[in-house]
Computed example of a mutant assay.
Amino acid sequence: MAMHLIGRRLVEQGLCDEVADFGLVKDGEMDAWLKDPRPLRAEIARRRDLMAAYANLQEPFVFWGTQPDVSTWPARGATAIEPVKAGDVLSGFPGCPGQVTGVARVILDPIDPTALEPGDILVAPITDPSWTPLFVSAGGVIVDVGAAQSHAMIVSRELGIPCVPSVTNGTRRIPNGATVTVNGDAGTVTIVALP
């Protein structure tokens, strides 16, 4: 909050372009920037432009060794996602054991869970503690990202509901309202019927 207040004051004084410019200042530059932000103004603008350019690129999901050069990253959303058909089986990671069939509810924000009814299958990009209340009514859980010790796995195991993590692009491939079977033992999601 203090930095936002400082940022607002600097913008009002015409010394910074945006309130959040402090987030683009490196640790070793902070003291000098607080005394006089003008010498770093052009560099901060360059960093802001670079951040905006990177936000439009799809970073590698995982890499081993050397990170691929940024020039090889595709534009975000440029890679086509193959839609599912009834009978398709999506692979993930064997998660919390059990098998359940239910209606898939794709939820991208835990603050707006209005579509999740008791017994529905929660389909989420990734989960953290803010998602925990949604697990209570879910019949099963599918997440795009996760592994053996991920939040989704731990909470599903504690509640005894089937979970399949690491279903890459599950939130983009599984249509909201599809009937799916979550097999936590095998780490698979079967599309039973489309909405």
Rank of each mutant, 00 (worst) to 15 (best):
S137I: 04
F93R: 14
G77Q: 08
E43T: 09
V62I: 09
N183F: 02
V106C: 10
Q149E: 10
Q58Y: 06
S71F: 07
L194D: 08
M30I: 00
Q149P: 01
W73R: 02
F61H: 13
G14A: 05
D27L: 10
K26H: 12
P118F: 12
P83Q: 10
D120K: 11
C16V: 05
R9Y: 12
R173I: 02
D36L: 02
V189Q: 04
I142M: 03
I161N: 03
W64A: 01
E29K: 03
S150G: 07
A104C: 05
S71G: 01
G170V: 02
V143H: 06
W131M: 01
G65R: 08
G184Y: 11
V84C: 05
V136N: 10
R46S: 07
V123G: 06
S137V: 01
Q99I: 07
L40W: 10
I142P: 00
G14Q: 02
G140P: 00
P39Y: 15
Q99Y: 02
V89E: 13
K26Q: 12
N183W: 02
A55Q: 12
V11R: 11
E117L: 06
G95L: 03
L15K: 15
G140N: 00
M1Y: 09
I174W: 08
A138V: 00
I154N: 12
A86D: 06
P125F: 03
V89W: 13
V100L: 12
A178N: 02
A178L: 07
I174K: 04
D128W: 09
Q13D: 13
M3A: 15
T127D: 03
E43G: 10
V62P: 00
L5M: 08
V143P: 05
G65D: 00
G139R: 04
Q13T: 06
E158V: 01
D120P: 06
A80V: 12
K85Y: 09
D112E: 04
A138N: 00
T171F: 10
D120A: 09
G170M: 06
